[in-house]
Design a protein around this nucleic acid. Structure first.
Length: 128
DNA sequence: GTTCTTACA
DNA sequence: TGTAAGCA
């Protein structure tokens, strides 16, 4: 099923379509890019092109934001994921959804510097 | 008409 | 984050 993966990664959607599919404003989408949360391709007149994978990524980012994480925190989670993916190359360990939840949990415990300044402490104190 | 970058009430 | 400005 590699061809399917390939298609999910094909960047062909303009920001306008992404806005409708994610309910995010162009401002937010571009801002997340500046925070290195997403990496859309560029094309013709320097226009951003997104893939279906990017759409999922943006929806995922929205969820993390609801969980009280800020840009830095989310990026940290993705960086961890990437490290695990690489570590997985020469080892037989794979990052499972449970691992991700654990990472998120740890983030909560010491999210002091990652928590959004003067923000809504997640209503759900112990979602884990 | 749509997107891009930059800047600021 | 919103939004306006000036380009492409």
């Amino acid at each position: 099923m590699r061809e399917k993966e390939l298609r999910r990664s094909l960047a062909v959607l303009p920001i306008g379509t992404v806005m409708k599919l994610t309910s995010l404003t162009a401002r937010q989408i571009r801002y997340y890019e500046s925070q290195e949360l997403i990496f859309p391709k560029r094309s013709d007149g320097n226009r951003r092109l997104y893939s279906l994978a990017d759409i999922d990524r943006l929806l995922e980012i929205k969820d993390y934001l609801d969980d009280g994480l800020n840009m830095a925190g989310i990026r940290k989670v993705y960086d961890q994921k990437k490290l695990e993916r690489e570590r997985q190359k020469d080892q037989s360990h794979q990052l499972t959804d449970d691992d991700v939840r654990k990472i998120l949990h740890d983030e909560f415990l010491r999210a002091g510097g990652l928590q959004i300044p003067g923000s809504q402490q997640p209503s759900v104190q112990k979602p884990f």
